[in-house]
Design a protein around this nucleic acid. Structure first.
Lengths: 253, 253
DNA sequence: CGAACCCTTCCGTTCAGTGGAAGACCAGTA
DNA sequence: TACTGGTCTTCCACTGAACGGAAGGGTTCG
């Protein structure tokens, strides 16, 4: 029995939306956010009036324009995407593989951008979605460069996704040591069968701010070529990011 | 002396961010949202804990990941963008002009997607930003198909942007009648000098759900060709949109 | 016709949010 | 060193705004 603050309840309502629940009725919202219907009614009304929520044709609620607009102002995401976009296109051109850009979000990887080819390996990522770190290439890179407490916490919960997922802490630690030493991480069908991946860190200055990765059906033979292509792109992104900080707030084109 | 609800205050804090203020200190936030510092401190703390706000390197606040993620769930925007993306690329290929996709948001146009060439006409639009309806091509289209009360309200405030902006209600009404009749709208340096535009409605079923437009330095001679290219793209988008409704929620690639 | 869903409104109680005040922590300036 | 102007943070007694049970209206079922 907690003492729920008004704000946290409003946020809980927004948090009720996810990629599997883009549209929710008032009752759904109340249920998912654990809020009495009458209270939810009022809060949802306020959110709707402000534009955080919109009503779809059938009367149910969806995320509104205002939130979408705000989201575009998020510098970590939007800035990163803009800086990375051209390099990711180059990388796609060079490899014809699905290209991923991700950052660490707590104990998970958050996909910031994704470039998928027409004929692509089965990949479960989506822009804005999160996946466990230990089962993805970009995740291993980010974990390898994460603070100790994050690493410790992540090791507690190495959930199995496929038969090849690394679930032994010792084995993962060993891999992560290698990632730091070699400068890239790989996976082999650890997240979804038929999909292998390579990823490298994106550095702005000394910090690892993101990870760039590609997904291919098999990487045995071409690994060196892929790693070097990834490195070129990642360096380009990093350089752009560092430059962006000093650039003017945005000259209208 | 209003009775400010907690929620509205939290929203006011979020609303303090815009494209010119992507990063705000606590005091800035309190000032801009008209909230006592101590109260703002607590609310901002909650928003930060939830992930709606993040702290940038210098300690100031920026829009956080959580909001960015939520924004991606907004179906009106994300759905529209996805449906439109390929057609906008085609249109860009055919015209080599800056391509715009916009919806009506209250009395303004909200730019949902934008495709700019390397060498482009000076254009002030940005994805997620809003502009007055009467001075843009997409705006005129949306205004021409807006409900009467919106039209009436919009006519009240025809602000002048350039020397060519249409500021006389009667003249604008006349143009809008033509837009409805001809099926396209044009502007000539009404928003920014050196930029002309053509725009057509995007229809899903009977409703005008958006407007597709292009910006060029001069459209005298090539107008018919541009209009027909726009119509092809707009029809494609409309068809995709109508189809999307019946499609499965999203098969992971 | 009742049952089971939705959504909306009302209103007396109460406890969470409020915000003034005090103070810590920086700069800069004298 | 002390002063000034700007941040940010914490505390706590008061009070009025948020709360939510209950009641009512509108559906769509069988």
């Amino acid at each position: 029995m907690a003492g729920p603050s008004v704000t946290s309840r409003a946020l809980a309502l927004l948090g009720a939306f996810d990629s599997d629940h883009r549209s929710l009725s008032l009752s759904d919202l109340a249920r998912r956010a654990n809020i009495p219907l009458a209270t939810a009614h009022r809060l949802v009304g306020e959110l709707h009036r402000w534009g955080a929520l919109a009503r779809s044709a059938d009367g149910s609620y969806v995320i509104g324009r205002r939130i979408w607009q705000l989201g575009l102002l998020a510098p970590e995401q939007t800035g990163l995407r803009q800086a990375a976009s051209p390099f990711m296109h180059d990388l796609y051109g060079a490899t014809l593989a699905t290209v991923h850009l991700a950052v660490r979000d707590g104990l998970q990887v958050l996909y910031v951008e994704r470039l998928a080819g027409h004929v692509s390996v089965p990949v479960v990522s989506r822009v804005g979605s999160r996946l466990p770190m230990h089962a993805t290439g970009v995740g291993k890179v980010l974990l390898a460069h994460a603070p100790d407490d994050v690493l410790a916490a992540a090791l507690q919960n190495l959930t199995r996704v496929t038969a090849y997922t690394v679930t032994q802490p010792a084995r993962l630690l060993d891999q992560l040591r290698r990632v730091r030493a070699e400068g890239y991480a790989t996976t082999g069908e650890e997240m979804s069968l038929g999909a292998c991946s390579v990823a490298v860190p994106v550095r702005a200055g000394a910090d690892v701010v993101a990870s760039l990765g590609i997904v291919v059906p098999d990487l045995r033979r071409q690994l060196p070529r892929l790693v070097s292509a990834l490195r070129v792109a990642a360096q380009g992104i990093g350089r752009t990011m560092s430059g962006v900080a000093a650039a003017p707030p945005g000259v209208p084109g």
